[in-house]
Design a protein around this nucleic acid. Sequence first.
DNA 1: CTGGATCCTAGGCGATACTG
DNA 2: CAGTATCGCCTAGGATCCAG
Lengths: 124, 124
Amino acid sequence: MIPEGQSLLTSCLPVRQLLARIGDKWSVLIVMALCDGPRRFNEIKRDIGTISQRMLTLTLRGMERDGLVLRTVTPTNPPRVDYELTALGQSLRAPLQELGQWAIDHEAAINLAQQDYDLRQGSA
Amino acid sequence: MIPEGQSLLTSCLPVRQLLARIGDKWSVLIVMALCDGPRRFNEIKRDIGTISQRMLTLTLRGMERDGLVLRTVTPTNPPRVDYELTALGQSLRAPLQELGQWAIDHEAAINLAQQDYDLRQGSA
DNA sequence: CTGGATCCTAGGCGATACTG
DNA sequence: CAGTATCGCCTAGGATCCAG
């Protein structure tokens, strides 16, 4: 399963780095918010609803740095800033969708397992 | 893209819950460590190498509660405890593999984007 | 060998106030 | 409108020691 001469750590490095990026609280929501085209800062904020101004800024910056998001400033007054997914960001949607499908397919099983586990703990 | 009458928050809930589970620092490594069959506590610890005893215990507990991992105790002296992926845990490997492939395929592009971004920051 | 209990620190994140 | 700056909380996670 793991290539010869490779440790678990190095062979999983790409996945782990990716999860370090999009495994946070907001990145996935931003990808989804942008999947229908460019949106302005406050539009995204309203769409997500519970994200703080600070975290929206920080997360967008990070995704811009990773090349997932493109930021376009129109220096009007007041200023207008649009965000959109790059080709790279768009390509993330597929594997993310897979993961989402798995989550939906097995949500019930997971909840059941948790109830089982918690019951056994309570009785122990 | 998003079903009518659904918010971004609710439509992404399954993915976000899943990421809350496996988006942490160690879960993916544990899945990989167990993909060739049952392993003992300290074997996993050695395989991963940099995980603390505490986090291995905690992460395994969490995955056991979620039904991803099965824990089997053999009450010898000293005790022997084996961990293995359940069917549910095995089924996670496919979408995880997809994600890993995406990460590998686009690793270079991401690094390039970061360098670009950092350069533009430095010159600004 | 397996893991619990405790202490400690870095960092994620929210709330709020301020700026161009 | 789109941020930046500052504060403070809370939790993830490491180190260490103890126990069955």
